[in-house]
Design a protein around this nucleic acid. Sequence first.
DNA 1: CGCCAGGTTGATTTCGCTCAAGCAATGTGG
DNA 2: CCACATTGCTTGAGCGAAATCAACCTGGCG
Lengths: 238, 238
Amino acid sequence: MKSFDKPPGCGVCHLLPVTDWNVLSDDELKVLDAGHRPYDYAAGDTVYAMGDPNRGVYCLSSGTVGIRKLDTEGNSVLLHMAYPGDVMGYRSFLAEGEHRTTAETLGPCRNCLIDSTTVSRLLGENPQLGIQFMKRATGELEQAHDSIIKGATLSNRARLAHLLLVMTKKHGRVTDDGSRSIDLPVSRRDLASMVGTRHETLSRIMGRLEEDGIASFSGRNVVVPCLDNLAAEISGSA
Amino acid sequence: MKSFDKPPGCGVCHLLPVTDWNVLSDDELKVLDAGHRPYDYAAGDTVYAMGDPNRGVYCLSSGTVGIRKLDTEGNSVLLHMAYPGDVMGYRSFLAEGEHRTTAETLGPCRNCLIDSTTVSRLLGENPQLGIQFMKRATGELEQAHDSIIKGATLSNRARLAHLLLVMTKKHGRVTDDGSRSIDLPVSRRDLASMVGTRHETLSRIMGRLEEDGIASFSGRNVVVPCLDNLAAEISGSA
DNA sequence: CGCCAGGTTGATTTCGCTCAAGCAATGTGG
DNA sequence: CCACATTGCTTGAGCGAAATCAACCTGGCG
């Protein structure tokens, strides 16, 4: 992890329009600027860990960050993935406590830390910022509820199909022959934890999906010939 | 017992100290008062349903409300339970869209509707209110993530034990002989949806718990002789 | 009464977990 | 460059758990 002496300004950040900070005035952006500091991370670095004291909120500039939680048995579950423009760590910031999750880079990342006092000040000055954060929280809540429902009603196979479908949006690209190619940013184990199954079982399910021509896996790359077939796995498996 | 000339307002609501509105000034409380309206519900009534347009946020005064979601197959999953002092419907309010969940009373309830314009006005005037709502949202998110982890790592039996343990807090009472008696506010089917299993399976698991002397079930009542034994189910089940 | 919703129980099959071995890619020290 | 350990993944066999389909209670209720 490397930090910069002279940070480039948030006011000119290419991501500004898609971040929660886009409701700030020019003056407030200067406050944000003064209170932020970018850090570069390599793949697998820990941004913050469960139990760490909160130092402020992070705004992801590039790369992908995985938000995970460890249970009492030492099991790790990948709960959420953060993408450029996303803010993380605002939960423990609000609770004024320690981090309840671990944030770990899934590849090289640039991540800006905005220190607590700056965030407090901005939240107090501009009610819109609070509403932005709130929308973010409710959006994540929506996602989490969706996960719970999928977990309660779908089979493991259908859940994997659903996960691949979701991954397509952020990590997929269309190949020459019209099929989708997805470069998964996560290991098999993490994928298994997201599906809610053991990694051995996941491996078998992938094998079956491959047999049926729904998707083919090689390493962290997945090729899906027809998205509709993948989508049919979810509704049609009942 | 004191009687009021006018119908009691939010400013004198006995729940005020524990609600999100406790950050409002006296003037703002008057605005809240003017914009709110109490409704009485019988058991099983629908407060709002998925797809309904948002009319504002609700503040539960008495009773218990279940927040559920229906998936494409018509399956219903009970996601969350609201108790007196809880605010609900703020998600679709913020999204300025239709309700994404269904709120259904699990018993007789009194629920106050605070209309959209009033909530907007209060949110704009007092940044603290936004922060309160945000804390609520992050709290619910925390709960949801906990659910996901439990769903991914625990067995069905352990999940039921966990659920009973949680229910004890709100619906349990200590009996004469020191054991806990819980009056579940939900049907077996809903309980099964919360555990993430079929109701037949839930029935069998309950039978096994009863055999092992962990809990005894009759109708919607559960008696737990020793909470520690119940807690041991969660960690001890591998 | 018959009907129905909510719940239990039974028989059968499928599924996923566990334990265990095998295998490929990568890294390390000699 | 090779022996060797390590890590991440796949495969197999056996077993226990849960889904499925079905019958059967039981307590309202018209």
